[in-house]
């Protein structure tokens, strides 16, 4: 479903040093995988290549039938409608309520108006925030704001959820809550790819863990398992 085939990424203004070096990777449908590694290892770069914010310098990224080598701008839009993307800094619109923020994702992608309220309500319920639907981001805690961001990411029924350090700004308790949410999302069939520095979180579960360093995959628990088995 997601395939990195010998992907190298050199950013134009990086002075020639590679953010990713010859990365080959496969993530199966419905899989849950952590991306770990020190700062600058290339985790965010992997995720950006996935939602085609960046293109590989060499090699190719394939995701759900699209190929980084020949994807059109129009297809990038289509692809992103089927992805859910969440960041450390929530990226909510301050002048919209929780439901307004979730509805935004539907409004700007041409979902028929009458369908929007139902979808929004369902997404907010899924993240446990139905009671805060009319609250503005400034009236919500960090954990709640991140749930709104998850509701927005989920409202289009994505086949994969991409989360770049979603718990980076949250305390221990809120982190646990968000992680539980991610497990629920994964349990309902959505693949989850999550970049994180939180090794406790990684160790507390037996999900796949891909560790990166200097733009290379240095450890993949899936490989380790395969070798052991």
């Amino acid at each position: 479903m997601i395939r990195f085939d010998r992907v190298t990424k050199i950013y134009p203004r990086s002075g020639g040093s590679a953010a990713l070096r010859d990365v080959t990777l496969h993530i199966a449908k419905g899989e849950f995988a952590f991306l770990t590694g020190p700062s600058g290892a290339g985790k965010s770069t992997i995720l950006k290549l996935l939602y085609m914010e960046e293109r590989p310098t060499s090699g190719e990224v394939r995701i759900s039938g699209y190929n980084s080598a020949d994807i059109s701008p129009r297809d990038i839009s289509k692809l992103r409608r089927r992805l859910g993307i969440v960041f450390q800094d929530f990226r909510l619109l301050e002048d919209r309520t929780a439901e307004g923020n979730v509805a935004f994702a539907l409004e700007v992608t041409g979902v028929p108006r009458p369908l929007i309220p139902g979808k929004v309500a369902r997404a907010l319920t899924a993240v446990g925030l139905a009671s805060k639907a009319t609250a503005y981001p400034r009236e919500l805690s960090g954990g709640e704001q991140q749930r709104v961001a998850f509701a927005r990411a989920l409202v289009n029924d994505p086949f994969v959820l991409i989360a770049d350090e979603p718990t980076g700004n949250l305390d221990e308790r809120a982190t646990r809550g968000i992680f539980q949410l991610l497990r629920d999302i994964n349990a309902s069939g959505t693949a989850v790819l999550m970049a994180t520095h939180n090794l406790d979180l990684v160790r507390s579960s037996d999900y796949r863990c891909i560790e990166m360093n200097h733009g290379e995959v240095v450890y993949d628990s899936a490989d380790a398992k395969r070798k052991a088995g």
Binding site: R91, F104, A105
Partner: peptide, 17 residues
């Protein structure tokens, strides 16, 4: 700019933006 960035992220087309 923030609104536009979010629009792109959730898959709004260039034309729509």
């Amino acid at each position: 700019a923030k609104e536009i960035a979010i629009m792109r992220l959730v898959g709004a087309t260039d034309w729509f933006i």
